[in-house]
Design a protein around this nucleic acid. Structure first.
Ligand SMILES: [Mn+2]
Ligand SMILES: [Mn+2]
Ligand SMILES: [Zn+2]
Ligand SMILES: [Zn+2]
Lengths: 142, 142
DNA sequence: ATCCCGAATTAGAATAATTCCAATTTCCGC
DNA sequence: GCGGAAATTGGAATTATTCTAATTCGGGAT
């Protein structure tokens, strides 16, 4: 019954100047707020375009730098679909991604509560998973 | 107890000249046999290097063309890890991939028997999944 | 407030995987 | 053997991302 996760908007803006040990420069704050604002999984270039509206001097290199910093400090997730350009996601809960082949839209998909990897994968004992990415493509029931 | 799937070698060579509706040219046969031979998830460039040993005139463009043909005819699977170059896999059974961060080696990981997507994902009813890719990174228990 | 200094930003060049192109070559069916 | 569509080829083009080197920023110390 529960459909895609349409999570509610947390307040952007007014972020502390240090977060998770990351110096929150104005460019990083701008990039983060762009990602928080629309939660539509924008590409680096999308983020660049949107950031320039409020900060016309920001550079694409800086956007890439900021995204890398935000991702490595786990304030944002990087999302990949096959060979497409990376997208960025502000949803920090455990989830994966579904791309509607009709529209290209990417939806967050939540893991069922309590499921563990070993429940559905034949992993050798002792394996430590440090990163997991599950990407789905298909059609939504009209 | 069951570890990574080390499947046994099916006989390469001697492929029919038409397979799955795909004209099996000598370049396509060579590319396919390279992938079947080592099952170590080579990149396009790996395949190119190995193919040149037996077919010195093959071009990289042709390797890409062949891989695309083999993948779209489902004789080979394309495997992606984040932004790394694509790799190719001859294991047609339902499986996903684990990359050992220590060595870079990629292992096939089998889904437990009988598990369905809906068992662990909150998918809206009526969703049709046409493609799924699950990629894991981590360490093997020494 | 000014100075210092490491970190961040910037523009532009470089990189690298993949795709495109236009010219040949292959090869299946007649 | 011919004709034609499909495949191959070498090289150029594309494009997302990374790198470089110069400049600017900003927080702590004086
Ligand atoms: Mn990731
Ligand atoms: Mn795939
Ligand atoms: Zn997401
Ligand atoms: Zn595989």
């Amino acid at each position: 019954m529960i459909a895609f996760d349409h999570h509610s908007s947390p307040a952007p803006e007014e972020l502390p100047s240090l977060l998770e040990g990351l110096r929150m420069t104005k460019q990083r704050r701008e990039v983060l707020s762009v990602i928080l604002a629309e939660r539509d999984h924008p590409t680096a270039n999308d983020v660049f375009t949107r950031s320039k509206e409020r900060m016309p001097t920001i550079s694409l290199a800086t956007v890439y730098n900021c995204l890398e910093a935000l991702v490595s400090h786990k304030l944002v997730k990087q999302v990949n679909f096959e060979r497409e350009s990376s997208r960025y996601c502000p949803n920090l809960s455990d989830h994966c991604h579904f791309q509607d082949e009709k529209t290209g839209t990417i939806h967050d998909v939540v893991f069922k509560k309590g499921v563990k990897l070993e429940d559905f994968l034949e992993l050798p004992q002792g394996t430590e998973i440090s990163h997991l990415e599950l990407s789905l493509k298909g059609r939504i029931g009209y």
